[in-house]
Design a protein around this nucleic acid. Structure first.
Lengths: 135, 135
DNA sequence: TCTTGACTTAGAGCGCACTCTAAATGTTAT
DNA sequence: ATAACATTTAGAGTGCGCTCTAAGTCAAGA
């Protein structure tokens, strides 16, 4: 029973993760993903763990971490448990960045909402004063 | 008393808005900013209104609106009041995009925070079991 | 046997949003 | 007069993160 659990092709992983097959190879080439195991025909075979890691990468990307930083993180990850404190520090810093970013977005969003409200009022007034279009 | 209120140089506007002088000229060239008035020596002179508009552009950018979309918005703006409904629609759509984006960031942030907590615990445990460094 | 189709690689190309360069002009201070 | 400095232009260059191409291998189906 030493079979490997879920062996996914690159196509399947693309569908599962939302990354393109191109991007999956690119991520592997630049070291974001460790060298993926191969089937006999030299085709990549991804494990469930690989999917998990890629999903996590996606979260880091979507929250604005650069490829460079993700490379640094991935390198630490591969070096094992002794780099745990470093990874913790990186995640902490990123967490703060994301929190700051959300706060900024919310401030800007308020201005946009205010403007939407103001424009809505103007448009409503225009419609009221111009009954030409209401028949 | 027909003097123009605040006539700022491009340098001053750069400092005021956080954009570089290069970017200010670039924004004008691609039509994000209307053609700025000139002093006798052909140097640009920005008004307070210009600053206000640039600040708003900055908010749109910072919330993820593309240059292309901002161009469309700026074009509508220049066409006057009859485009108000269109601008309202654009802002509304952008508002929704930003809200969705914030929500996504918050979901991802939760995962990151969870991981930070987990790593923190591991690191703490490592420190406890290895008193070599505590002296 | 032949075709189709998924995969492989190295490396080129692309879109975005700036960012910078070079050469010229004009203003100000010594 | 001369030097230093801010501005002007058109257009070239840059960094990021993909995205695609071309040429090849391999396996399955008609």
């Amino acid at each position: 029973m030493k079979q490997q659990v879920n062996q996914l092709t690159i196509q399947e992983v693309a569908e599962a993760t939302g990354l393109s097959v191109h991007t999956l190879r690119y991520y592997e080439k630049v070291g974001l993903i460790h060298t993926i195991g191969r089937a006999d025909n030299s085709h990549r075979r991804y494990t469930d763990d690989d999917i998990g890691w890629i999903d996590f990468l996606n979260k880091l990307r979507a929250t604005g971490m650069s490829i460079q930083q993700m490379q640094a993180y991935a390198t630490l990850q591969r070096q094992g448990d002794e780099t745990l404190p470093d990874r913790l520090a990186m995640l902490r810093q990123h967490q703060q960045m994301v929190e700051a970013n959300i706060a900024e977005l919310q401030r800007h969003l308020e201005v946009i909402c205010y403007k939407v409200g103001y424009y809505q009022q103007l448009v409503t007034e225009m419609a009221e004063k111009e009954p030409a279009f209401s028949q």
